[in-house]
């Protein structure tokens, strides 16, 4: 056997043995409290109908011995699945491998379907079906809709646009699918033009207008604040000059735009460093999950 394969096999066996040991000790198990739920039918038809089921609430291992608390197989299985998937993703750092490929395939499938399910229930059902057919919606999925609600015909417009879009699947006349896209791209262009000009152009200019020289209330020169203000204004103006397209960066403009690029580099270096701590915190969060929640170390 090749040396690397031998080392990996030993590591895997050792790791597996350790996991078995931890599991037998009782780590990596999830306990839940049973909470029976009794619900009265909202519209009793003749006899009072009472529905009963059990809700489960996750509890810490410390409450293991209490009367309503029991071991939950599905959640424990879930915990182990989550832990192995986490390790599988981390294995990508060493290189592409079958375990990562398998996990990635599962992830893509689950996340694609998840997005569709969410869109179905939050948009199509709540915002279209319930708005256009409130009566039918009330007796199927949304019993809390007001019984006097009337259909909101404004929602026919997005329905029509969506049908036009789906015409794309038809062999003939699929060009009509461009119409809803054109509508929304036009809408995006118009809305974003206004919002960006207002907050990111006029708004930023408003925050930047400040005096070059600042005086205290007794008339003395606050030269530190003045220096800071001046640096600020010089920074903004030199970066703006860097972004000019119609002037070549020659002569005076070259030096000012170099200054601008230096300001930008300071900005990027600072942002980069600022984020490092946050990312390391994310990693430590996953390690806590693996070591604390799963292995119980």
């Amino acid at each position: 056997m090749k040396q690397s394969t031998l080392i990996w096999t030993i590591l895997m066996v050792a790791g597996g043995a350790f996991l078995l040991f931890q599991a037998s000790k009782g780590n990596g198990r999830v306990y839940v409290r049973e909470i029976p739920v009794e619900a009265q039918a909202s519209q009793p038809e003749g006899e009072e109908q009472v529905y009963r089921w059990t809700r489960y609430q996750q509890v810490t291992e410390a409450e293991k011995g209490e009367p309503d608390v029991r071991f939950s197989l599905s959640r424990t299985l879930g915990l182990w699945v989550a832990a192995f998937s986490t390790l599988a993703i981390f294995s990508f750092l060493y290189g592409d491998n079958p375990i990562y490929k398998f996990t990635e395939s599962v992830f893509v499938g689950v996340s694609a379907a998840y997005a569709m399910v969410v869109a179905f229930w939050t948009e199509i059902m709540t915002n279209l079906y319930a708005k256009l057919l409130p009566g039918l919606a009330r007796i199927t999925f949304y019993p809390d809709i007001d019984s006097t609600a009337r259909p909101d015909y404004l929602y026919l417009i997005p329905l029509v646009l969506s049908i036009l879009l789906l015409w794309r699947l038809s062999p003939k006349g699929s060009w009509i699918a461009r119409w809803p896209l054109a509508f929304f791209i036009g809408a995006t262009a118009g809305i974003r033009l206004i919002s960006y000009l207002e907050t990111d152009f006029v708004g930023q200019l408003q925050s930047t207008v400040m005096p070059f020289i600042v005086f205290a209330s007794d008339g003395s020169l606050l030269w530190i604040k003045s220096l800071r203000n001046t640096i600020f204004i010089v920074g903004v103006v030199s970066c703006m000059i860097y972004f000019f397209f119609s002037i070549e960066h020659e002569g005076v403009v070259k030096y000012i735009s170099r200054l601008g690029i230096w300001f930008l580099m300071v900005t990027f270096g600072a942002s980069f460093a600022y984020t490092v701590m946050g990312r390391i915190a994310l990693l430590s969060g996953r390690l806590v999950f693996l070591f604390n929640d799963w292995l119980g170390i």
Binding site: Y196, Q204, F232, G260, F263
Partner: peptide
Amino acid sequence: FTTPGMRAIKIGIA
């Protein structure tokens, strides 16, 4: 230093 840089970027983006 960072704030003026970000402001100029945002103005350009707008």
